[in-house]
């Protein structure tokens, strides 16, 4: 690992300026992904701006939403009374991610900004447009078992690894950021981007922009929820496919639904059409299956991930069944 300069500002403005003015600088919070990537030479920042002294850890209910500070730890959020009561789907998704130790280190902001786990991204000797624009996509014709079936481009077929983000996408969260040009809020769906011709850009954040909080609007998804994560072992593994499902039920009738998928695209994949399809339908396996079929329209597989065309809809059905039975 290269040497780097390390600063630990206590003022948000100082931190933002430090990163905004230096293209080789980056924020570090929990470090659980960045330190890993630096050890492998995938990321080589010359300057780390440690933001852990900034006062961004608060979790509080304001007006019509739950505001979660960007530096709140994943474990803290998952165990927080307000989160468990108002957004159990978020708590489930957080607890499905990583390990107890990592959840004690990783922050909400950092979780959103995780880089892909694509093996071609991780090995600096292999081609990867995300790591090294123009070098090619190793996964396109390679071992693409873990890769995208939606929203990919011929430049990149990687998937976003976060579980928490899948729940936040389903819950219509808003991301608050602060940058050199001031503060703004970003609808969750607009935070992460599709690879297109610039897979090196994971998000729509501008240089120096710092995530300060996430707001999750109040809703009726407090009971019939399920974060269903299919992985290759029972815990502590990234998703093959995961589904965040939330239902608002009136008896057996679906009043409202939220659905998002992980492990299938470069960003958390919200299933709006499938949600629409569910409204007014009975909460039965047949309805869930129809919604899953709607959700899968436009999916396309590669050589090694054809199974996702079947696993993804099945997991949607299973998540909805689990949510309805909760």
């Amino acid at each position: 690992m290269n040497q780097f300069q390390y600063v630990r500002p206590t003022q948000q403005r100082t931190a933002i300026t430090a990163v905004a003015k230096d293209p080789n600088a980056t924020f570090i919070a929990g470090g659980t992904n960045l330190v890993d990537l630096m050890k492998r030479g995938v990321m080589t920042p010359q300057k780390l701006v440690d933001i852990n002294r900034l006062p961004l850890t608060k979790i509080e209910h304001q007006k019509n939403s739950l505001r979660i500070g960007a530096l709140a730890l994943n474990a803290t959020v998952a165990n927080h009374q307000l989160v468990r009561e108002r957004h159990p789907l978020l708590a489930q998704a957080l607890n499905a991610g990583a390990s107890a130790q990592l959840r004690n280190m990783a922050t909400v902001g950092g979780n959103l900004l995780q880089r892909t786990r694509c093996p071609y991204f991780y090995d600096v000797t292999l081609p990867c447009n995300k790591r090294q624009p123009g070098s090619g996509c190793g996964a396109l014709e390679g071992i693409n078992r873990m890769h995208a079936i939606f929203g990919f481009s011929d430049k990149c077929i990687a998937v976003h690894p976060s579980d928490m983000s899948v729940a936040l996408a389903a819950l219509d969260a808003t991301v608050l950021v602060s940058g050199p040009k001031g503060d703004r809020s970003i609808a969750f769906a607009d935070l992460h981007r599709l690879p297109g011709d610039a897979p090196e850009k994971d998000t729509t954040l501008e240089p120096g922009e710092l995530i300060t909080a996430v707001e999750v609007p109040d809703g009726h998804f407090t009971r019939y929820v399920s974060y269903y994560k299919v992985r290759e072992r029972a815990s502590y593994a990234f998703a093959l496919v995961s589904v965040a499902a939330a239902l608002d039920l009136d008896g057996d009738n679906i009043v409202a639904a939220r659905l998002a998928m992980g492990g299938v695209a470069h960003k958390p994949w919200r299933l709006a059409a499938a949600e629409q399809h569910l409204i007014g339908k009975p909460a039965t396996e047949a309805s869930f299956r129809q919604a899953a079929d709607v959700a899968m329209q436009g999916a396309k597989a590669f050589k090694h991930n054809e199974y996702k065309l079947k696993l993804a809809p099945n997991t949607i059905v299973q998540a909805l069944k689990t949510a309805a039975a909760a």
């Binding site: 570090i28 330190v35 440690d50 852990n52 130790q101 004690n104 280190m105």
Partner: peptide
Amino acid sequence: CTVHVDGQRVNSCLSFAVM
């Protein structure tokens, strides 16, 4: 590499000591 930092379990391999 699990240790306790201020009583919480963390992976000591994934954080810089200066943090």
